[in-house]
Design a protein around this nucleic acid. Structure first.
Lengths: 343, 343
DNA sequence: TTGTATGCGTTATCAG
DNA sequence: CTGATAACGCATACAA
């Protein structure tokens, strides 16, 4: 490897000057700058990032923490790719790199490993759930002063940096849309309560029903676990009480699709015999039959904002107040929620 | 940050001894080892990974290169999550971390950036395509001695380390299956030729048709670009020559689903009026209606093997012969390819 | 505008 | 078995 020293010698300057050129520091004579650059390119010199990190005492890496996923099925391609792309874009704009950390099931407690080893300057944490262990771990992280930002998850009662989407409003829009399509008996298939989104969506659902002066009986409230299978199973329950249901709002696309599959087996076709709206606006929403109306979530922007915020906080060393960004969601209407679509 | 020095002082030994303890080097008296460990835990000492990298002159990072994805839609959740999980597992077993690099459209040439900056010791490259630029870039990488491994892509005529799946056999199985279901007029909807998989699948298709003594007219060969839309559009062409087609083998699930959607609009339902088999066995295959028969590809294992190989080569510094691992694929039969399924 | 000198936290080599 | 000590490649405060 060619080092700064060799460049300095070839250019006939000191090593410090070479550094200055490469870091754009201080005033300097254009000619010496040119000489250094010339020498560098001639030798094909590239600064050693590790050495830089070492000297600067910062890694230049943003950690991206992904949860353990039993069947890898929690995330859609959309979620995954979009958030990572958003983070990636921001990171590159700031000259950072992203270090990926896939948690193992028993590793909730080891959030701090990457920080301790100084491999990352800050972290974006994806897919966190509201469990006692995670609360504990995250609080520790914060106490230790490690900068991090949560994406798409809120911890009630704790003040973390978070970038979330307005799931309450999204759900409100969805239910509102169903009402406008003429449905009044609208069920809600929610997901696991350990995700704050679930509670948000419930709120949006209830508010929309309330605002429309509609009843929300206990029977209209179902719970799955965000898997297609749980949606499929919910179809059974819904079918048994089909007199009370005209439409369903599901907390994610996967469950919505499972639900449609289940009801189709009974003879009920979405968009004809009943209406469905999902959440996430994932790939699957476009691939399903009929195409699924859904709530679009700006994952790319969320990832980007999370990275921006957390790096800013690290760079400026500002121990800022926990910020709570919330990005807008948007209803995407497809055939699954239009009673006239298949006729 | 607490450093080795402080541990050494507290334990009453030299810094070198602390290092030996933490690296498990050389013989040493159990008592001093215990003293060091005690001091370390008391001070909550953790080695600085950056400093270690600097001193060892290796980063301890495996680079994972992802291609530029115009619409992020090239990869299914499956592909993405599975490969990354596989790499992640292997990497952790070897005490490495993974550095993610998202290429931008114009960055084909900058494959070497991460290596030059010494941020990674080796790379796994995903989603490469066979273009002149990429061939050029990869050859340069190899000439410069940077260890890397390609996943799911072969470059004919060039000897790179590659981990691939047996797409020829997978396709053979798929077409064979359709034949066994009684279909004889089997079309093939292929994807972009810049992915070696496409050529592999064509081979498998042709071989299966040939072995069965079936004709493969020009009309039976269609080409899309792996997008749902292109599959949807292919439906138009197929419909116009529906007399010549009873079944379709599509080079990925996305196109297969688009195809089913398109033909359904004409009144042809997969699994009833015609049969379809896709490729990748992605999430969408289970979510589609009817569920899509598909070729399962062991992405997890491919990622793991790629990481294992490339790290081994780096660690042992062995300039090994380019290896060409090929993992088996497997046909998964669902309703889309069974003529009796919907009756 | 540029050079000098010091330090960053390890690893690894060489004595003892 | 253990202790000195020289790298490692760069950033940066201080001088000039």
């Amino acid at each position: 490897m060619v080092t700064r020293k060799e460049v300095a010698e070839l250019a006939g300057v000191s090593e410090a000057t070479v550094s200055r050129v490469f870091n754009g520091l201080g005033p300097m004579k254009p000619t010496t700058k040119a000489r250094v650059l010339e020498a560098a390119s001639q030798l094909n010199y590239h600064p050693n990032a590790i050495a830089q990190s070492f000297a600067r005492r910062r890694s230049g890496n943003l950690g991206v923490v992904l949860p353990y996923m039993p069947k890898v099925h929690l995330f859609s391609a959309y979620y995954f790719a979009e958030i990572l792309s958003g983070i990636g874009e921001q990171v590159r704009e700031q000259g950072y790199d992203m270090l990926l950390s896939l948690l193992k099931p028993d590793e909730d407690l080891d959030y701090a490993r990457l920080y301790r080893s100084q491999k990352v300057d800050a972290c974006v944490i994806l897919g966190a759930r509201d469990t006692p262990q995670q609360r504990e771990s995250l609080q520790q992280l914060q106490e230790q002063g490690y900068p991090f930002c949560l994406v798409n998850q809120h911890f009630e009662g704790l003040a973390f940096h978070e970038v979330d989407a307005d799931h309450v409003d999204g759900s409100y829009q969805a239910v509102r849309h169903l009402q406008e399509e003429g449905y009044r008996k609208i069920a809600f298939l929610n997901g696991s309560p350990e995700y704050s989104n679930s509670e948000d969506r419930l709120q949006g659902y209830l508010r929309a029903m309330h605002d429309a002066g509609l009843q929300t009986s206990h029977e209209l409230l179902l719970e799955g676990n965000y898997s297609r299978k749980s949606g499929y199973e919910a179809a059974e329950r819904l079918w048994s009480q089909r007199e009370q249901v005209e439409a369903v709002f599901a907390a994610n696309d996967r469950m919505a699709i499972g639900l449609m599959q289940g009801l189709r087996e009974k003879g009920w076709v979405a968009g004809r015999d009943f209406a469905v709206v999902g959440c996430d606006d994932s790939d699957a929403a476009k691939l399903s039959d009929p195409p699924l109306s859904s709530i679009n979530v700006p994952f790319y922007e969320m990832g980007k904002e999370a990275a921006r915020g957390v790096l800013a906080r690290f760079t400026q060393g500002e121990r800022a107040e926990p910020s709570n960004v919330k990005l807008p969601t948007q209803l995407i209407i497809r055939q699954s929620s239009k009673s006239s679509s298949l006729t």
